[in-house]
Design a protein around this nucleic acid. Structure first.
Lengths: 349, 349
DNA sequence: GTTAGCACTCTTGATCGTTGAGTGCTAATC
DNA sequence: GATTAGCACTCAACGATCAAGAGTGCTAAC
């Protein structure tokens, strides 16, 4: 358990270090206005804090640096939320969401971009993925005799398309008939149930109407692909190269490991979507709290945005462990709520 | 004009430097098997080559480094094409294209990826953009009272979708009616003419049928977006962080400038699409030959792929000026032809 | 409990030879 | 006349040495 004084000192150290990226010494802390203690006293406290694992020393006779545990404590107990969030800034952010939008993807992309320029870190937005999304319409547009584009439009306005080619002995007319049938039967069915519903309930009906079970099965197989392949949600990145601005990534090795990770959107998606909570406040993962090796030097702050309580997407910031947690959490908090509002409005209107 | 001996020496210097990234000295050149001259002679020739602008010296008493002009001469006159292209490698590449594909985008993405891992440079593929593509079908799927998804399916099977929201005082029924009309009128019209055709020919007809010109105009404006926004061809990148492997980009400043440029797909698209020629062989742009400041240290090698003679896309490699031109040109040559074949097959079948 | 003082540690930056690679020039050689 | 051996010279890179400075831990006094 930390004394009030230790908390104050820890806080100052974290904040100093976040600003300067250099180990902070006892003297510089004691110079702070609120601090009425001598350097020697601070030194003693710092030694205690180090013993308890909140601080680390790069080497004897260097200042102290917050440990992972130190950051964790800072985030959990010492952060005065909103303190660092400039109200002007907030207004500016909110303004971004006031414009009428006609493409939700643009908003996601823009959000990532602004967030990254505001923070100088890397921003990620996972595009809205609606789990309770249902089928609005299934359309088929013929291309040739044995190929067609299949379009799946969901209730949230997302479109998945897939070009399918079907066996030579199946005619376009048969496919169209089948699609009409599917449309009747599946309208309003949640996307995630789609596959099983088709298999369990529809196949036999299809077979009955089409008189040939084998044949129907083959067509269905072709069509099913459209529901499978587009499972991957969209990932929007902003300011990936901001990583290079941070002194901790002046080492090209480290920079490369993080940047190559970011290059692969699938892995980013996985990492972020795992964080998806209905929690109201942003989640913070510091350094080694991330499972991925390349994120050991990084912190990941994420917030979900919701539509009527259900999480539909994530926005996040990736930066060095030495991160301005207060500001980032504040920004994500504001933005996730704005996103929620916007997306809700979008889906309902 | 260079003597044969100077050409040989220049070639050796370029090749040595490309391999080692270190200035090459006279002695190391004279040690080459084909070289039967002493270091002193080479030194004299090198001095001449420098005077003529083909070589540069980082400082007195360092070896020589090819100048931009030196690389240019190398690429134009000294390159033995195919020499460095391992036939095994070629076979491997061709194999990638033999699989049956059902999504042309996947192919583009994969090509970029393979190309970058093969070369250790950054690869770019501009997705096929078909100029003689025409409208196959225009579909509208309503979402709410005042929003809908508009789907544009082209004759090549590409699908563009755009969510549009239209003014409050325009009903869904009106939009549907309009879309039906557009479908009738525009089926088979080339995509690139679409916009002008809508404006010039269709508007008045629409207005007549819909009795209210103003209103029709407003809806059309909403819909037109679908044809405009998707003009931007798709850009697929592979191995962006490979840039960091090159010693010339161990300097974080330089790395950042190139990487941030790559981050913005629009600018990449612009730079690459400008290179689009029907030329059969790849184009090479060395260092300052690029207009962009961030590419001054880079070279850009591009090749187009065609469908029946018309260029539809570009594949390219971005790397340091100290690049393995022979290998890269060879690879791009093979790949662009494979792409041409594949895409042609795709469009015709 | 707090602090002044002091010895000690360790990084950082500067200075300074030393080494070695590489050059340019000259004079001898083919 | 072209080629080459030889040699003096240049300069980056490296390592050793040194002083300065920042910071610590400990002790003794307040």
């Amino acid at each position: 358990m930390l004394t009030e004084r230790q908390k104050l000192i820890l806080r100052k150290i974290v904040e100093d270090y976040v600003r300067s990226a250099e180990p902070v010494g006892s003297r510089s802390i004691s110079k702070h206005v609120e601090m009425e203690l001598s350097a020697a006293t601070i030194r003693n406290e710092m030694a205690d804090l180090e013993e308890q694992g909140y601080l680390e020393q790069p080497h004897t006779s260097a200042g102290r640096v917050p440990s992972q545990q130190g950051y964790r404590y800072y985030v959990d107990h010492l952060l005065q939320l909103g303190e660092r969030l400039d109200s002007q800034e907030v207004a500016k952010l909110k303004a971004l969401f006031s414009e009428r939008v006609d493409e939700i993807e643009k908003v996601a992309q823009q959000t990532a971009l602004y967030l990254s320029t505001f923070t100088q870190y890397t921003a990620v937005v996972l595009g809205p993925q609606v789990y309770d999304n249902s089928l609005r319409s299934l359309q088929v547009v013929p291309l040739g005799e044995h190929s067609a584009v299949l379009l799946v439009v969901t209730s949230s306005g997302q479109v998945h398309n897939k070009t399918v080619s079907f066996p030579d002995d199946i005619s376009l007319a048969q496919v169209e008939k089948l699609v009409r049938l599917l449309n009747d039967k599946l309208m309003g069915v949640p996307i995630y149930q789609m596959r099983s519903r088709i298999i369990e309930e529809i196949s036999h009906e299809v077979a009955r109407q089409m008189r040939d079970f084998e044949e129907a099965q083959r067509i269905l197989d072709s069509l099913l692909g459209a529901f499978v392949s587009d499972k991957d949600g969209k990932v929007y990145l902003g300011g990936t190269t901001n990583m290079l601005l941070q002194p901790e990534f002046h080492n090209v090795e480290k920079a490369k490991s993080v940047l190559s990770w970011l290059e692969n959107r699938d892995s980013v998606f996985k990492a972020l979507s795992r964080e998806s909570r209905t929690d109201d406040s942003p989640t913070v993962r510091i350094g080694g709290e991330n499972e991925l090796a390349m994120l050991q030097n990084c912190s990941l702050v994420t917030a979900t945005y919701n539509v009527s309580g259900a999480p539909v997407g994530v926005i996040g910031i990736i930066g060095p462990t030495r991160m301005e947690y207060g500001r980032v959490i504040g920004l994500l908090d504001v933005l996730s709520h704005e996103m929620s509002k916007l997306v809700t409005k979008w889906y309902s209107g």
